[in-house]
Amino acid sequence: MTTDLPARMLRLLSLLQTRREWSGGELAGRLGVTTRTVRRDIDRLRELDYPVEGTTGRAGGYRLAAGAAMPPLIFDDEEATATAVALRTAAGQLTGMEETTLRALAKLEQVLPARLRAQVAALQQSTATIEWERRVPRADPATLAALAAACRDREIVTFAYTTRTGHDAGRRVDPHHLVASGGLWYLLAHDRDRQDWRVFRLDRIADLTAARHRYAPRPVPGGDPAVYVAGKIASAPVRYRAIATVREPADEVRRRTRNLATRIQSDGPGRCTVDCSGDYLPGIVQILTGLDADYTLDADDAVRDHLRATARRALDGAG
């Protein structure tokens, strides 16, 4: 018999979350109490805003219904491990839900027992994903999760950073926001040594360590982290320049190319410009093809030559 009230309530809540419906007798048997005690415990859950419904019928019973807000969930070890692995995987694959996924992962990993954190890490290290096309460098899920927690908790972090020129340097920063763009992850942080805002690509971060010290948050220049990071990305030096003027509204192009949202600017009614610049010629051509609209191109000669060669191969292949 479960005599400890808090333990019994948690056990009852866990049972209600594992099955669509329970009879009062079944719950009483699982908990080792009377059906009258079950009814009282159900009333306590309702007082805590858990939407427990009573069902009609010969036996009657209870079920946890959908409510106006999401109540706390209780996972067993296997469920917690599966959820953490799924969130870590989704963090690098979902488009449009990356930040939400990371917040959920940070909450879960904060309360995982050490033995389960080890299981999650082992599963993540021993699984792989087959990529059928060239992808941009993917940030380490553990780094994503740790930085998400540091941003949430306003905790100073240190890490080693490799610049685009290959130079390695140690950084000590106040992490403020994570921003996803074009399949890449960026950290917007205030650099303590340089006393200025900096944007870091997560795939170039290594040896991340939390300093266990808090910082006082400060306003982001311009107020919008995504706009600030987009401006820094756009002004960063690249090997090949390519600007497409597309004869379609910006919102329509964004709908088809969500990864390019920060690169698209309205250019009047029914027109927009798309910055396709980059360091990889086939990637630029892929972006231009994905626009699926008529456009004019202002680009370096190397981009134009590669685009012509690609078009000739496509025409030859089509016969």
Rank of each mutant, 00 (worst) to 15 (best):
D251E: 13
Y240V: 05
R198I: 04
L73R: 15
C151L: 04
D168A: 09
P221T: 03
C276H: 09
A65S: 11
R194N: 06
V227F: 10
I156S: 03
T245L: 13
A121N: 07
T245W: 14
A106L: 04
R212T: 10
A145T: 12
R20Q: 10
V111W: 06
P219G: 05
G96A: 06
P282G: 02
F200D: 10
L48H: 12
L94D: 09
D294S: 15
L64S: 04
V246C: 02
G268Y: 15
E98I: 09
R19H: 09
V173N: 01
A7P: 11
H167M: 07
R164W: 05
R214Y: 10
H176V: 03
E252I: 12
D4F: 03
G92L: 10
A104E: 12
A216E: 13
R241K: 11
R46I: 02
A261P: 08
V136P: 14
A106G: 09
R138K: 15
D174A: 08
R304C: 11
D301Y: 04
S126W: 06
G29I: 15
T289A: 13
L260Y: 01
A118Q: 13
A69L: 15
E252G: 07
R152Q: 13
E79R: 14
R19L: 10
A261T: 11
I156N: 02
P221V: 03
P175H: 07
L105N: 05
L202A: 00
R241P: 03
D207G: 10
T310Q: 08
R214M: 06
M9A: 13
R36I: 01
Y161H: 01
